[in-house]
Amino acid sequence: MAERNQKINPEFFQSDRNLRFRLFKDKLMFYVTGLCLLLILVPIFGILFEVFINGIIGFTPDVFTKAGGSPLDPNTGLLHAMMGTFYVSVIASFFGIPLGIITGIYLEYYGKGFFSNILRVGIDSMVAIPTIITGIVVFALIVLSMGSFSVLAGGIALAFIMIPIIAKTTEEMIRLVPQLYDEAGYALGLSESQTAFSIVIPLASRGIASGVLLAFARIIGETAPLLFTAFFSQSVPNNILDVSATLTVLIYQYGISPFEAWNRLAWVAALLLMLMNLGVIFITRVIFSENGVRPWTRIAEIIKIAFGGVIGEESAKEE
């Protein structure tokens, strides 16, 4: 451009035209993709907005203090479902987190033989199994043999959903630790297990922890497996063998009911669930993102992931 007054080689001119065309294509693509983004963002914000507004409208302090009851009783709340969700997620974490991590470590370090290959195929298919099937299996194995629905059965069903997710992320995150750290450990005269547990796994711990949190975010939104296991009730569960409502099942039960009071509570439950999910994802991002990342970049990422979580599991898988 600066050399205007000099002679122009026709070939250069040719390429200049090409360049202009490419710049034009570049701009065009920018607007097309921007438009697509907008098309996606509008319904996402629509969903969030709808849940938020309806949830706020239905909100009363009773929500946190009162259990369920008759749809005609104006003084009912969500305490029973909140406690149910709390119980099932604690139980699921209690079994799912350690078993998932141990399985992941096992697969990465010892996953070579026939048994490990079977385990790996099993884990892969567990990720793909529709969660309603997990629910019905736990129903057959635990609910039927114990003779009643329980939050314990619900927690176990959710643990089965957590384990493959955590196992796979753990395996992957350990594998991502560069070989040079393994070698540094061995070269210092450390054994294989010392190198694994003192050097490599700690280096993978952030990744493992974010896998755990994403698995957690995933299970607090599960409904289908809980329908067969924790089932539903209007009172606060007294212990882990009690049948209990959970937020997701309550949304389903109250949402399809003809009673306006219950519909209102379903919206509040939806809002609570959404906030919990966003909270978990927020924690994952803030605590476990790399040092030195600008807060804004973080928040943008959080929003991206959160929306991904609302729409589908695509972004969860990418993580």
Partner: peptide
């Protein structure tokens, strides 16, 4: 493991933990 305690190594790419 004990052999490696007698024979240390420094790598091409610095790899502090």
């Amino acid at each position: 493991v004990l052999v490696r305690r007698k024979i240390g190594m420094v790598f091409q790419k610095p790899n502090p933990f």
